[in-house]
Amino acid sequence: MFIIPKEKEVPLGCITPAPVTEQTMMITGNWREYRPVIDQEKCNLCMNCIVYCPDACWQLNEAEDEVVWNAKYCKGCLICVNECTTEALSKAYELDFEDGVVRLEKPF
């Protein structure tokens, strides 16, 4: 028999569970240098930020009257800002926020 340290365990044949709504083993929010900031007043729900985000980090809220940003996974590519049709989105330096990413504390 072999002793396998917990942190090195691999499931049999490397077959892993599928995620459901997010993959919490790969949190990417701390990659950001900038974050997109929304002015809900200006948003007309054109959906561009939702469809164009490679990381599915913009979704409609339950009432479907506002878009909601996912800070946990947004990598800060800013495609959403570039594609926003109403200038509701703008970019802001991540370190200007109190909850801003402290870069490289936990790389990924």
Partner: peptide, 24 residues
């Protein structure tokens, strides 16, 4: 575009580069 399905089957939490076209 308003009618695109809401459910995601390629969920957030992957190591593709920021702005990755293939991921999109």
């Amino acid at each position: 575009i308003r009618n695109i399905p809401r459910e995601e089957y390629y969920v957030p939490g992957h190591r593709t580069c920021a702005g990755c076209g293939p991921a999109l």
